[in-house]
Design a protein around this nucleic acid. Structure first.
Lengths: 158, 158
DNA sequence: CATGAAACATACCTCTA
DNA sequence: TAGAGGTATGTTTCATG
């Protein structure tokens, strides 16, 4: 899982595009699609995996179908922005399973995160039992997503 | 791909958890892990797929490794909020590959989206050539992610 | 290209709510 | 007795060296 910077050529990008669309394509089908035979195709896939370009293969589960229809975006400002405080905050929220994404933002140097939950009471529980119990949080601002217009994992290669 | 509401039991949830961690587990390993034999395990997986609970299987590609290190969150307010305008906006941005996520938000009824790009110039191109060319956009506000603290696809089942 | 492993399709039995 | 799991078997397809 090296993170050394890998130079990708056109075939690599086509492999990645195909695997982003279907993570279960067989090497044979993949090879055919990108214009290789199976051996070099498999070799490339393994290299991409080892280099960390492919981080893994996952099943995409429908949020609503597992009764987690609510996405909340939360903006959080910390009282102090010392490195140590930021790291501690980041480590803590990373451990919470409700947090799907969390970013350190420019500007006010605050965090933006997306939290999923079953309903409003569940969200309130998350707030009361977790977020508001953290030290050093200056402000919390929540906005609710009414509708998921788009949600993809497919990166625009090139 | 029915969206009829499916009732999931404990075994289903464990199957989903396992497949969210590794979308390529063999049915055998999966069956062993959830305490079934392969036949009923495979049956359940197929049902979950057909019911749309499992939307698909994908390779997770590292954003930075494919030279798309920048995530930008964009808040967009529309001039009018008629159904028709909202739909047209949603349909258009859904087609742009740079847009990874887009949500219709409560409150001001505006949109929040995450766009990925290679660098600032690329983002400016996206703004100039796409976003600002749309009709009916009242305001655009961008915030940049400095750092991805967490990004997961694993939903907190139960 | 050959080989072993896994997926897949089936058919049939068992148990129980 | 319908529904879910288990057993068994044969075929096909794939990964891999």
């Amino acid at each position: 899982m090296r993170k050394r910077h890998v130079v990708l050529d056109d075939i690599d990008r086509r492999i990645l595009a195909a695997l982003q669309a279907d993570g279960r394509t067989t090497i044979q089908a993949l090879a055919e699609r990108v214009g290789l035979t199976t051996s070099p195709c498999l070799r490339r896939v393994r290299l991409l995996e080892e280099a960390g370009v492919i981080r893994g293969y996952v099943a995409v589960v429908d949020q609503a179908a597992v009764d987690l229809p609510v996405s909340v975006f939360i903006s959080i400002k910390l009282e102090r922005q010392r490195e140590e405080e930021l790291d501690r905050f980041a480590a803590t929220v990373s451990r919470w399973p409700e947090v799907m994404e969390c970013y350190l933002m420019t500007g006010q140097r605050d965090y933006l995160m997306r939290v999923v939950c079953a309903d409003l009471p569940a969200y309130e529980r998350f707030l009361k039992e977790k977020l508001t119990r953290l030290d050093g949080v200056a402000s919390i601002e929540s906005s609710f997503a009414l509708e998921q217009v788009k949600h993809t994992h497919v990166l625009p290669l090139r």
